[in-house]
Amino acid sequence: MDVAIDTIGSDEAVDVSLALVADRQRIATIAAFARGFQEGFQVLGGGPGADPGTEIRNAAWRELLPLVASGKLDLAIAATYPLGEAGRRMSP
């Protein structure tokens, strides 16, 4: 894998990202702040010491839109659900 974005924050999610992505600067988390600082990958968001991500968000569309337009951006979508089912799918 080229990049990983952790939005879960569990040790398992971080461990998988570290195992699959060779360059730790290409791993980002919005949830596992302590592990990010400890393991040396990007920590984004509003937590203590985190990069708020402003530069990344402002620059992302300049890279992503041409990739989408050319068909070079490959996003794997495992499943889709009607919005009305979102609350039921999020519940334990």
Results as ranks from 00 to 15, higher is better:
residue 1 M to I: 07
residue 1 M to H: 12
residue 1 M to G: 09
residue 3 V to G: 09
residue 3 V to E: 08
residue 4 A to M: 09
residue 5 I to K: 01
residue 5 I to N: 07
residue 7 T to V: 14
residue 7 T to M: 12
residue 8 I to K: 08
residue 8 I to W: 10
residue 8 I to Q: 00
residue 9 G to F: 00
residue 10 S to R: 05
residue 10 S to C: 03
residue 12 E to I: 10
residue 13 A to F: 03
residue 13 A to N: 01
residue 14 V to I: 08
residue 16 V to N: 09
residue 16 V to H: 10
residue 17 S to P: 00
residue 17 S to T: 05
residue 17 S to D: 09
residue 17 S to Y: 04
residue 18 L to Q: 03
residue 19 A to S: 14
residue 20 L to H: 12
residue 20 L to P: 07
residue 21 V to C: 07
residue 22 A to N: 06
residue 24 R to T: 08
residue 25 Q to V: 03
residue 26 R to I: 04
residue 27 I to S: 03
residue 27 I to A: 00
residue 28 A to M: 04
residue 28 A to C: 03
residue 28 A to Y: 02
residue 29 T to H: 02
residue 29 T to I: 04
residue 29 T to D: 05
residue 29 T to K: 03
residue 31 A to T: 09
residue 32 A to M: 05
residue 34 A to Q: 13
residue 34 A to W: 09
residue 34 A to Y: 12
residue 34 A to T: 10
residue 36 G to D: 08
residue 38 Q to F: 02
residue 38 Q to T: 12
residue 39 E to C: 00
residue 40 G to D: 06
residue 40 G to T: 02
residue 40 G to W: 00
residue 41 F to E: 08
residue 41 F to Q: 01
residue 41 F to A: 05
residue 42 Q to W: 10
residue 44 L to C: 08
residue 45 G to L: 01
residue 46 G to Y: 13
residue 46 G to R: 12
residue 48 P to E: 15
residue 49 G to K: 00
residue 49 G to Y: 04
residue 49 G to M: 02
residue 50 A to R: 02
residue 51 D to S: 05
residue 51 D to H: 03
residue 52 P to I: 09
residue 52 P to W: 12
residue 54 T to R: 15
residue 54 T to H: 13
residue 55 E to G: 12
residue 55 E to T: 11
residue 55 E to K: 11
residue 56 I to G: 11
residue 56 I to M: 14
residue 57 R to A: 14
residue 57 R to K: 11
residue 58 N to P: 02
residue 58 N to D: 13
residue 59 A to I: 00
residue 62 R to T: 13
residue 64 L to P: 11
residue 64 L to V: 15
residue 65 L to I: 14
residue 65 L to A: 14
residue 65 L to E: 09
residue 65 L to Q: 14
residue 66 P to Q: 01
residue 67 L to V: 06
residue 67 L to F: 04
residue 68 V to L: 15
residue 70 S to Y: 07
residue 70 S to A: 15
residue 71 G to M: 07
residue 73 L to F: 11
residue 73 L to R: 00
residue 73 L to S: 00
residue 73 L to P: 02
residue 74 D to W: 04
residue 75 L to V: 15
residue 76 A to G: 10
residue 77 I to Q: 09
residue 79 A to F: 13
residue 79 A to D: 13
residue 82 P to Q: 12
residue 83 L to F: 15
residue 83 L to N: 10
residue 90 M to P: 01
residue 91 S to F: 07
residue 92 P to C: 02
